[in-house]
Structure formats: C-alpha cells, structure tokens
C-alpha cells in the first residue's frame, strides 16, 4: 500500500495541554490506581491449589457441550450454523439423515478442536436449537493433541456431567410472549444474554 492511498487516514497526535505537559497530574492519577489496588480486596487466587469462583456460569465461556433432547438424543440438527459462524474453523460436522421419525437430519459426527477454539461463544449464539453451549469448565487439559479434539460422545458426556449444575439455557428463558418471529435463528439468538440476566 502506498502512502498516497485514499484508504489511509492520516491522524495527528493530539496537542498536549499544560497539565499533560507537566506530567505530574497523570503521574498522580496512575499512582492512585496502584494504591487503590494495594489496599483493596485481592482478586487473584493461587490456582490450582485454590479454584476461582465463577460469578455466573451461564455466561461463562468454557468447554463446549452438546445438549440432549427430552429423549436423550443429541439435540443438534446438523445445520452447520455453528461451523459457519466459527471464526477459528474448529467445528467439523458430518450431517446425515436421522434414523428417527420426527427428525430429518442429525450429526453423525461432531468434533470440536478445543485447541483451535478461541472460546468466543459464536457457536452458541448461532445455534438455532440451543444444542451447543459453553459450560463453565475452564481447566481444560490433555496429554496429546488428539485428546483435545472432542468428538460427539465426549461433548455429550460434558453435558451429562454439567447438566445438573448448569441447566440448559433455553429452559431458563422467560416464556415467549411476543409473536414468534419468522425464522427460528432470530428467535433464539438473544438466548445467551437473556439467560444470563
């Protein structure tokens, strides 16, 4: 790119006022912050001896889980919206025709590369059926790269392990009073924030 490119916006540094040039007020400002933290309550914990407390597990973005429906089947319908939304391309789905009467499509395999994942929570927002959720499990470790690629069974087992502590977020949403919107994706897109409130 050339310096004359019209896309470049040249910005001048702001002119310093008297206070800023004196340096002292800013110095004091910074020192006040430091002193405040010196005397205030500690927020750091000595992990792993001590586990940090998670304020609201509903909005925490830890390990993924795949939710089950009422019949214990994977809730996911293999629509690929999470894989589409994923900025790290860590979700790999193989969608096939489902073996069940009432469902059309389901994921034959569903893998998330937890090492690639950046835990942004976009998959959760994109999901039209609240099948993928981020739990509050944060201490994610493994002995190999392969171990960190979570398959469908493992993601479902995360659900089994966390469902009592963290119920499905869609169950905690207030009942819909306004007329439902035309597309299912818009109807559920606000669930994570509302569920956490």
């Amino acid at each position: 790119m050339q310096a004359t490119d019209p896309d470049i916006q040249w910005v001048e540094p702001p002119k310093l006022g008297l206070g800023e040039r004196m340096y002292l007020p800013l110095f004091l400002q910074g020192l006040t912050t430091t002193t405040k933290h010196l005397v205030s309550a500690k927020v750091t914990v000595s992990y792993p001896d001590q586990e940090p407390e998670i304020d609201n597990p509903l909005i925490y973005r830890g390990v993924h889980r795949l939710n089950r429906d009422e019949q214990g089947r994977v809730k996911c319908v293999a629509c690929f919206l999470c894989a589409t939304a994923c900025p790290a391309h860590c979700i790999d789905i193989l969608g096939v025709e489902s073996p069940w009467e009432d469902r059309e499509k389901y994921p034959e395999s569903f893998t998330i590369d937890e090492l690639r994942c950046i835990f942004c929570g976009m998959c959760e927002q994109a999901c039209p059926v609240d099948a993928i959720e981020l739990t509050s499990l944060y201490n994610l470790t493994g002995r190999s790269r392969e171990e960190m690629i979570f398959d469908k069974e493992k993601l479902l087992s995360v659900y089994d392990a966390t469902k009592d502590k963290e119920p499905m977020k869609s169950a905690q949403l207030p009942p819909v009073t306004t007329p439902s919107t035309a597309t299912p994706s818009t109807a559920t897109s606000t669930s994570p924030t509302e569920g956490g409130a």
Partner: peptide, 9 residues
C-alpha cells in the same frame, strides 16, 4: 403460514 420454517436443516 403453511411453511415448516425448518431452514436450519
């Protein structure tokens, strides 16, 4: 009105 709106699948 009569459409299933099952766009995800």
């Amino acid at each position: 009105i009569r459409h299933p709106v099952d766009c995800p699948i």
